[in-house]
Amino acid sequence: MGIPSIQPYFMPRKDELPNNRMSWTLDPERAVLLIHDMQQYFLDYYDNQASPVVELLTNIRQVRARCTARGIPVVYTMQPSEQTPEERGLLLEFWGPGLTARPHRHPIVNELAPGDTDTVLTKWRYSAFQRTDLLGLMRRWGRDQLIICGVYAHIGCMLTAGEAFMNDVQPFFVADATSDFTRNWHEMAMTYVAQRCGVVLSARDVLDALGEGRAPFDLERLRSEVAELLELSAAEIQDGDSLLDLGLDSIRLMTLVERLRNAGIEISFVDLAERATLGDWWELLSPRLPQAHRPRSQGEEMHGVRG
């Protein structure tokens, strides 16, 4: 009885995702982001310094930031810290008392704390639609797509995707922004969703669908990328500001390096780690831009760096 201790495993890569039966496309005007049960209690069963949790937190944070920027509603589910045996029902037999045994671990993890405009729903069963107003909210908002992130992939996330489908809501299951007890359970959940009720995407797919990577890579795009990772507005980052003082850590820096490489810019973690400001980074990066990303007047762009 109860949740098992979860051993580290590698998060699925984009080239390891199952084939989707459907070719549905994410639309910012139709979508809602669901961050499912990302409470400290559920992450306590992992090694939070290892895969898949490191990638899980980074990817959810990126997806949430992009959804917020595009005006997509963000909904969290949280299981309550206090539940009577009647409220817990059959979950008590399967999993024991759950959060009621450790109510102090009830909050959403600090890295993903809900914002003032986000919606938080109390959740009582596996599916986020059961005994909540999620479907009603989506209908009032005129939205019929659900982006699903969180834990655990083969339990609440998968069953939420199934119930979304049964209510004519298109579910988009973000494979590397969900995690599970084991890699096998994770793969089972992905395969089921891809073949029976939704579309499985990577976090990068979601970012691309919501507007990532369409503009040339210039100083302002670099500023926007860094701002998203730091959960700030671009206007809050001046070229001479210390990015370390603004909250840059090694995980965010590794994520940025991967984004730059995806844009065709060859750079290493060490290259960026040795420099502390956006202006320094742009001075380093601009000569390495692929031709397709070079600004028309790169000299002017360089001289326009704000100190």
Rank of each mutant, 00 (worst) to 15 (best):
S297T: 10
Y192A: 10
L244V: 15
W282N: 01
R275P: 08
E274C: 12
P18V: 02
V32G: 06
L244I: 15
V193D: 10
R252L: 15
F217H: 10
R275W: 14
Q238F: 02
N19F: 05
G264F: 14
N110I: 12
Q130D: 04
A194S: 03
G304R: 08
Q49K: 14
G307E: 14
L159T: 14
G115P: 01
T191V: 08
D205S: 10
M188Y: 12
I60Q: 06
S127Q: 04
R294D: 04
A215H: 11
S242E: 03
F173N: 12
L159S: 13
W24A: 15
A113L: 06
R196F: 06
T178K: 08
R105H: 03
E266D: 14
M166R: 15
L256D: 15
M11F: 01
F42K: 10
V257E: 11
G142F: 05
L201G: 04
L272E: 15
W185Q: 06
D205L: 03
E87K: 10
R13N: 02
S5P: 03
P8H: 01
L135W: 04
A263P: 15
R294E: 04
A177L: 13
E236Q: 03
P216Q: 11
E163F: 14
W185A: 08
D180Q: 06
P80T: 00
R221G: 02
P287R: 07
S5F: 09
L99D: 01
W185T: 12
A177Y: 11
A31T: 10
Q49H: 14
V226C: 02
W95A: 05
G264M: 15
G307I: 08
L90I: 05
P97S: 09
R221S: 03
D208C: 12
E228G: 07
D15W: 09
Y152N: 01
F172P: 08
G156Y: 06
F10I: 02
R143N: 00
G89I: 05
I108N: 00
S202T: 04
E29T: 07
L43A: 07
Y76Q: 08
T84V: 04
L121M: 07
H186D: 04
L135H: 03
L112G: 01
L91P: 00
Q170A: 14
A235Y: 09
V305F: 09
Q195V: 07
T255K: 07
G2N: 12
A209K: 05
R70M: 12
N19P: 09
H36V: 05
N59A: 01
E87A: 03
T77M: 07
H186R: 02
I237P: 00
I6A: 02
L90F: 04
V53M: 04
K123C: 06
T178V: 11
Y76M: 10
L159R: 13
Y41V: 07
T277K: 07
L91H: 11
R252P: 05
L243K: 07
L244M: 12
D208M: 10
E258W: 14
R125D: 02
V63E: 02
E212Q: 15
N184W: 15
L57P: 10
L121G: 04
R143S: 00
Y152V: 12
L289H: 07
S224D: 09
Y45R: 13
S51G: 08
Y76V: 03
A234Y: 03
M22I: 15
P12T: 01
L272Q: 13
G198E: 09
Q130V: 01
P114I: 04
V109K: 00
T25F: 08
S268F: 11
R221H: 09
M190L: 11
